[in-house]
Design a protein around this nucleic acid. Structure first.
Lengths: 208, 208
DNA sequence: CTGAAACTAATTGTTGACAATCGTGCGAAC
DNA sequence: GTTCGCACGATTGTCAACAATTAGTTTCAG
């Protein structure tokens, strides 16, 4: 059963196990009903993804990701998503452009009506669509890995007040650049957007 | 013994096993003198790094990396190393600046005397130094992984005629920008440099 | 009362055997 | 002669038991 791997992964990502918490194999066996071998393989896998840390003879713990590291990860995401946005601008089709436009419209509406949760969902949808348009497998895989590592910190970001008003024009700029098939502008717009995310993270560093 | 993992890794990287070749566990046990469990773990690890591909009930094969994928990987390296160069420009110390200068000087000399092998070594040393100066752990790890994946294709690039003459000024521009503590210029210079590498790769695509 | 050493319980590392699965080669039918 | 099906060999997937290591605890000497 490889599904034990995904189950464990999901459990860590949703925050059932806290960072720094020990992942004792016997406990996991009981919780997921998998054999020790399977659990062990799953932990090994998650370690390769950077979600847990395995120390020899000491077992696995949920990896603690500091705010400083979150900033590093976001910086890497900034340049990767910038690359992806540029590729999307080169490859976007008319149908995809229409889809981008629609998401942009819905985002504006969500901000106006104050539906923060919906805006967050649309945000994810937009980024996912851009990645799909770009079709850059290598960047895609890395972004997924990095996103998983910051899963916990990302939830916090969605709750920052005034954030949607700040990011909406950035999103619209990204959409406009991709629709105009301007790779350079698309990359720049995406980088500006994520750079502002980094600024928010840094301000959290100072305040907390 | 975790060393079996490194041994297998090294063996694949040096090209003893060719892309597409099957990695039968029994054979590896005999070759590396490790237990099956250890070999299995090693393969799992290498799969996570993208060096081998594991299919259920079919075992592991050395991952075949197409030229198109190599280009993708290099594009990602371009933006990552660009980020790293920018960070290096922000953090470089006087001593490090001197070291950069020295490498630049040696590179120029190596090009003038036609010592291609030496130039290639200095090239690696320069990139490694810039990464060390930047101290960006997240980007560092990813670059290492990507480099390992292209190990085979990279050897080819060093042999392209006229390449040192082309890349020397690019390297000098990178060094100058970092010494001037200009992050934006450093990133741009690094990206220009690797972009030209991508052009070489694309020309290989057309010719071969 | 404090410190170190030895013991013990908990946990992980490793091994070998067994089960499941896949690809291949043979044979028979059309 | 070709194709389909079957069985066998090779290979990987999984398991349970055993060995090694670690960390915590107790005991004893100073």
């Amino acid at each position: 059963m490889t599904s034990a791997r995904d189950a464990l992964r999901e459990t860590i990502l949703t925050g059932d196990y806290l960072p720094g918490e020990r992942l004792v194999e016997a406990t996991l066996i009981e919780r997921f009903g998998a054999s020790r071998f399977t659990i062990r393989l799953a932990l090994q896998d998650l370690a390769a993804e950077g979600l847990v840390e395995i120390q020899r003879n000491r077992g696995a713990v949920v990896r603690k990701i500091s705010l400083a590291e979150t900033i590093e990860i976001t910086q890497v995401r900034m340049v990767l998503e910038g690359l992806v946005a540029a590729h999307a601008a080169e490859r976007v089709t008319a149908a995809e452009a229409a889809e981008l436009d629609e998401i942009g419209l819905l985002m504006r509406r969500a901000v106006e009506t104050g539906e923060h949760r919906r805006y967050s969902d649309l945000n994810q949808r937009l980024h996912a669509l851009i990645r799909a348009i770009a079709g850059h497998g290598t960047a895609d895989r890395l972004i997924d890995t990095l996103k998983a590592q910051q899963a916990r910190h990302q939830i916090m970001l969605a709750l920052v007040p005034g954030r949607p008003q700040q990011s909406l024009p950035q999103h619209e700029a990204i959409i406009a650049a991709i629709r105009a098939r301007d790779p350079k502008a698309a990359e720049e717009a995406m980088r500006d957007h994520i750079a502002s995310v980094i600024e928010v993270l840094k301000s959290l560093d100072e305040s907390g």
